[in-house]
């Protein structure tokens, strides 16, 4: 946690975690706005591929670790193509991945039978726990890769193309925009409070009510100004976005067909076991 000192005060005031959250959001926006090849793929293609990938991953039988392992190829390939740091991504997913791993933790105790894996007897509970973890991790990674290579505006454009109701897409988009507005206001209010109450560890419960009221009013004001600014620049409930690229191009279609073929192949046969049996 970063520290800074306040002149005239010996106490150290902790910089808010909210600032860190805002920076995280900005970081994801930085990633999605890069000029990498994967970032240029049509958002509809990436969105549909991600959905199909997740559906394919979760459709595996609970003991089919070998079949599922082949599906690691998609996130690995996108990480390489998008030049994203794997370790950095794991760091950003540090709160989600443990939860995903926790889901199957009781399986070894509940499912005590044995199954054969490549001719070796293995605890069924351990296998089902492993597949659950793999399914969770792959799905989270695929979603992360989607938002790390596609801006939210483009994602919303893709949702619009899929005939998701315009009101719902707009709501989604504006909610995302206003989360930052809300967080910035929370950050300002918290910092202003802590700078005048340096001996306190947090916000005193007596101040919660007035701060929450202030936060609501200020956030509404700012959200209203942002909305007015959009209206004054021609916004009429629809982002006039990517009109030139309304339909996926040839490269987008090739990318889609390639990955669909890979998913079909890896879903139909356990490629990892086949490769293993050759060697």
């Amino acid at each position: 946690m970063e520290l800074f000192s306040v002149s005239g005060l010996s106490e150290r005031v902790y910089m808010s975690k909210i600032g860190g959250t805002i920076r995280e959001i900005h970081y994801m926006e930085t990633l999605s706005s890069r000029d990498q090849w994967v970032n240029q793929i049509h958002p509809l293609v990436k969105f549909v591929l991600t959905v199909i990938y997740i559906l394919a991953v979760v459709s595996f039988y609970k003991y089919d670790v070998a079949g599922l392992a082949g599906f690691a190829v998609y996130p690995l390939a996108v990480f390489i193509l998008a030049e994203l740091s794997f370790l950095d991504s794991l760091k950003r997913l540090r709160f989600v991945l443990p939860l995903v791993c926790l889901v199957g933790i009781l399986n070894p105790f509940l499912d005590k039978q044995e199954v054969m894996l490549a001719g070796v007897p293995v605890s069924a509970g351990v296998l089902s726990m492993t597949t659950l973890i793999m399914k969770g991790v792959f799905s989270v990674l695929a979603s992360y890769l989607l938002i790390a290579t596609t801006s939210l505006e483009k994602l919303c454009y893709a949702l619009g193309m899929l005939h998701i109701p315009r009101a719902a897409v707009t709501q989604f988009l504006l909610t995302y925009r206003y989360i930052t507005v809300l967080l910035e206001e929370v950050d300002r209010i918290t910092q202003a409070y802590l700078l005048r109450a340096p001996r306190q560890k947090g916000i005193h419960f007596k101040a919660w009510g007035s701060l929450a009221g202030q936060l609501l009013l200020r956030s509404l004001d700012r959200a209203n100004e942002v909305y007015e600014s959009m209206l004054l620049r021609g916004y009429q409930g629809d982002y006039g976005y990517m009109r030139e690229h309304a339909v996926p191009g040839r490269q987008d279609r090739r990318y889609f067909i390639f990955w669909m073929a890979v998913f079909a192949l890896f879903r139909a046969c356990p490629v990892i076991l086949v490769i293993g049996s050759i060697f």
């Binding site: 100004e225 600014s229 959009m230 620049r233 009429q236 990517m242």
Partner: peptide
């Protein structure tokens, strides 16, 4: 607007400056 943070809501400068012309349906 008085407060630039209310005026600028897109991610990059290009996206923000392009917001109005895109909304008015101009070709890219």
């Amino acid at each position: 607007f008085q407060d630039s943070d209310s005026q600028l809501f897109m991610n990059t400068v290009y996206e923000d400056v392009a917001f109005a012309p895109r909304n008015y349906g101009l070709p890219e």
